[in-house]
């Protein structure tokens, strides 16, 4: 019984972190799906989302506003606005001028953007860890109080529910809306979509904005869940989310969700049953294995050579 509770607890831990990875991974996978480049500055967009949320929360607290839902909603809106305009601006400034060139050029531009944004936040906000107020506290406990108890906190539940809402909304948007259909068309064939009268520049901008908004949501959620943020906050999360996107099949949105969850659970199970030291070894080992046997990732479509 106790072993089962322990397993459940590690599963909850893994799913929490995994759903946040999935939210960030969407940004990588959508951009790759549409213009075939890896947006390495995406982790920084997520970090900027977390900083904006923290600044908003501190500002609201200074104004004496204490009603939690209002604080969270305002913080969320500000984070999404700042991050998505940042995502849009990054594409406009650093990627659009070099689009269509050799693959390496946008890649280097993206790495440069990532370094720039990281150092910008270093300068503007200082390099120290800043504590994030614990706004959502408490949770449910299972099991007898004398032995091991599985707990699921309200914060974890918030992360699951928010991720679920975002993912459902995104799926509906992609499958039902006009812009969503245009997104799919552009990802299948950019040149043809252009010929058929789709404003591809607008669709590409929309992709960056959607990815950045989801990253901002993840920034707010994970900032609260972890409890502190720093300018390097986005780097590791970005790397993990990128791994999740590749694991699930880069370019595939359900793949990013699945990849995020698998990565999160494999990390927490490795820490829980082996040792925290092997966490990254196992997740990246898993990535190599999957790529060896299924180079397109779990849900990626095999690339058809266009003639």
């Amino acid at each position: 019984m106790q072993d089962l509770l322990y397993f459940l607890q590690q599963l909850i831990n893994g799913l929490t972190i995994g759903s946040a990875y999935a939210l960030i991974a969407i940004g990588y996978t959508m951009v790759y799906g549409i213009i075939g480049m890896i947006n390495f500055a995406h982790g920084e967009i997520y970090m900027i989302g977390a900083y904006t949320a923290l600044i908003t929360i501190t500002g609201l607290a200074a104004l004496g506003i204490a009603w939690l839902p209002l604080i969270l909603i305002v913080a969320l809106i500000c984070a999404v606005l700042v991050s998505s305009s940042m995502g849009w601006a990054v594409e406009r400034v650093a990627y659009r001028p070099v689009r269509g060139r050799h693959r390496l050029i946008p890649l280097i531009s993206a790495i440069g953007m990532s370094i720039f944004l990281q150092n910008y936040v270093h300068l503007a906000q200082g390099s120290r860890n800043i504590g994030f107020p614990a706004l959502i506290q408490g949770g449910f406990q299972f099991g007898s109080p004398d032995s091991f108890q599985t707990s699921i906190s309200y914060m974890q539940i918030t992360i699951f529910i928010t991720t679920l809402i975002c993912m459902t909304a995104l799926s509906l948007f992609i499958s039902r809306s006009r812009t969503g259909r245009a997104c799919r068309a552009v990802s299948q064939d950019l040149g043809m979509a252009n010929l058929l009268g789709i404003d591809t520049n607008r669709i590409i901008s929309a992709t960056f904005i959607i990815g950045a908004s989801l990253a901002a949501v993840a920034g707010l959620l994970l900032g609260m869940y972890y409890g502190s943020i720093d300018p390097l906050f986005g780097f590791i999360a970005g790397l993990k989310a990128f791994t999740a996107a590749v694991l699930g099949g880069i370019g595939s949105i359900p793949g990013a969700m699945l990849g995020g969850l698998i990565l999160g659970v494999s990390e927490s199970m490795t820490s829980g049953y082996l040792s925290g030291e092997y966490k990254d070894v196992v997740s990246f080992g898993l990535l190599i294995l999957i790529l060896l046997f299924k180079p397109t990732g779990l849900l990626g479509k095999p690339e058809v050579e266009k003639i």
Partner: peptide, 22 residues
């Protein structure tokens, strides 16, 4: 006796393990 990775943010698995080890 176990290591973590410097720069990590999520320690929920480690804490679960510490709870289990009582």
């Amino acid at each position: 006796f176990e290591g973590i990775t410097a720069g990590d943010k999520d320690f929920s698995s480690l804490i679960t393990k510490l709870k289990q080890a009582d």
